[in-house]
Amino acid sequence: MSALEARQQSAAGTDGTGTLRLIRLAGLVATAALVFGIVPEVLGSLWLKVLISAAIYGLAASGVALLYARLGLVSLMQVALVGVGGWVTLKMWHATGLPFEIDMLAGGLAAAIVGALLGLPALRMRGLYFALVTLMAAAAFQIFITATQFPNGGEGWLGVSRSAPAFMPRPLLATTDAAMFRYVVAVAVLCFLAIEACRRSRAGRAWALIRKSEASAMAAGVSVAFYKLAAFALAGFVAGVAGGLLAATIGVLDARSFPAADSVMLFALTLVGGAYAFLGQAITGLLFRAVPALLNDVGVDGDIAFLIFGAALLHALITAPTGIAGQLFGLFGRLIRLGGRR
């Protein structure tokens, strides 16, 4: 909860002092220049691909964070929803050949519908018990997708080819790795902004009220069911879009990429990154994809890398209850105060 307060404080501070706003703006511009201008030019193909994956899963994590930070709900099925989005995107492309953006939106919508349907039980239950419903959904998805696989241009409803598999090409705007990286980051930022817009609208106020007390939300005339499901739909949508981006990056998808355990892992890392700010989800994406790649690249044995990863996960959950982003914001706040005193 302290992270939330810290955020609110820093938000209040932004409105108050001009210098802070300036620092923030300068930071944003510098980050944008770094991400869009410099990073794609200096990195090799390996690290660009790793960062693309990290951005994609950071985007997926923003859905998990939305549910957790705004409604206190835990979703352990986000990676499965990424799979749903990827499946629909691939199916759409192979079936219709429409531009990638339309296929991706279809993937996002499909995952939103599935997410909202699986969110239905949340109207009546919460906490661990609800989290386990979502885990069951993720586990069932793993079984179903292993048996059906992802479309690769084949015949029939499932679209799995018996002979030469076809790749889905990258979007026209992003045929190279560098362009794909910019494309993925731009889509992720758009989704982040959409979530932020919802948070600041009527929906955000409804979520805040529901989180405080469902009874008083109802008494205030808020449709608890509608806004809860809207949150699930939004979380599902970003997962679906992430799935579409993943499919575009590689061209094909494999059932092995979406195990139930990964959904649990993504939630854990969302906590570790920090659920209350988008910086946290960026960190989550990096932890989920860039850290294992780094360990692999420096030649750490794959098993030992997992050992380090598990230990680090436990350590971070214990020592950083507000997530790494929360710690960074705390640090930043202290620095500002120090500077102000001088």
């Binding site: 390996l46 994956s53 990429s257 294992p292 790649a293 692999n296």
Partner: peptide, 16 residues
């Protein structure tokens, strides 16, 4: 690591 994403990454590293 039996992961399609990792497979794509490491192959890019070697080839590109």
């Amino acid at each position: 690591q039996w992961s399609p994403e990792t497979a794509s990454q490491v192959a890019s590293k070697l080839v590109k």
